[in-house]
Amino acid sequence: MAENKGVLVCGEIDSKLASITTELLGCGRKLADDLKEDLSCLLVGDKIGDAAKEAIAFGADKVYTVEDPLLKQYQADSFIQVVEKVAKDTLPRIVLFGQTSMGRELAPRLAFRLGVCLSTDCLDLTIDPNTKLLRQTRPVYGGNAQAIFVSEFMPQVVTVRPKAMSPIERDALKQVQGNIIPTRISIDTTKVRTKVLETVKEEVVGVKLEDAPVIVSGGRGMRGPEPFKTILKELADLLHGAVGASRPPADNGWVPEATHVGLTGKIVAPDVYIAVAISGASQHIAGCSGSKHIIAINKDPEANIFKEAEFGVVGKWEEILPAFTNKLKELL
C-alpha cells in the first residue's frame, strides 16, 4: 500500500479565498515543513479564478482546482464526492478542514468513508517528532477541558476552529512558482439527495460581528430583547462595534441567531469584548476567548466571566452601563 504523504487543506471560497482557508494554509505550512512534505490545497466551485493563486501566495505548494457548474453552491452530497476522490487519489497524511458550515459536514463524512476517526474544532496541531503523528488538541466538555488525540489510521483528518491559527504573510512572488492543477471530477447527481430550495440571509444591520473591532454582548441577565436594541446598541455604535449575545438571548428569540457568540454560535476575536450580564459559561467563553481584552459587567462577583476578564465592574448593568457610555462619550 502506498504511503500517505503531505498535508491537504480543503479550502473554501467566499468570493475570494476565505480567511479560514488562509489560516489552514498557515497551519498546514508549518506541519508540512515539520514533516518535510508538501502542502496542497483543494478548491471547489463553479469559477475559482484568482483564489488558486492566492492559495499559493498563502503557502500552498500545489492547488487542485475542481470547477464544475454543479459545484456552484455548496452541497454536502456533491462536494464530498470531490473531496473523497482527491483524498483517495493523492493519499495525504493529514487533511485539514475549517470548523465551518462546510467543514463540519464534509470532514466527518470523509473520515467515515476512509475508515478513520477525526478530531473536530482543533485549537492546536503539532507533529510528534518521534512518531510523526499529528497531535490534535481540542476543547471538550463545553470548553471545561482540552483533550489531545492521536490517530494511527491514515489520513489524519481534523477540523480547525476559525481564528485559532494565523496565516503566513502573503507572498505575491510565490504565485508564479506554485503548481495549479485543474482536476476533472464528474459528479454523480444521483447521489445528490438533498436540494437547497432557498438561501435566506438574515442580515444584521451595521458592522458584522466577525469583523467588529469591539463587541458589546449581553446575556440572560438582560431579561428581554429591548436592551439589545437600545443601551447595548448605543454603546456598540459609539465604539464602531457590533452587538453580540450569549446563548440564552438567542434561544429565547431576543436577538437573531447570527449574533450568538459561543461554541455553537460565532467564534469571534475582537480587540475588545464587553460582556454584560453574561455569567461566562464555558460554551460562551469558547466563542470569545480569542478576544484581546475582555471587559465584564456582572452583578455576581463570583461569576466565571471575571476569571476571563481583564477589567470588570460588579453591579447592576442598568446602573453601570448608562454612566459608562456617557463617560465614554465625553472621553472619545
Binding site: S101, T194, K195, V196, L197, T199, K201
Partner: peptide, 11 residues
C-alpha cells in the same frame, strides 16, 4: 448557516 438559513429538501 452563519448569516441566515438554507431551506433544504431531503429524501
Amino acid at each position: 448557516i452563519p448569516d441566515g438559513y438554507e431551506k433544504i429538501e431531503v429524501t
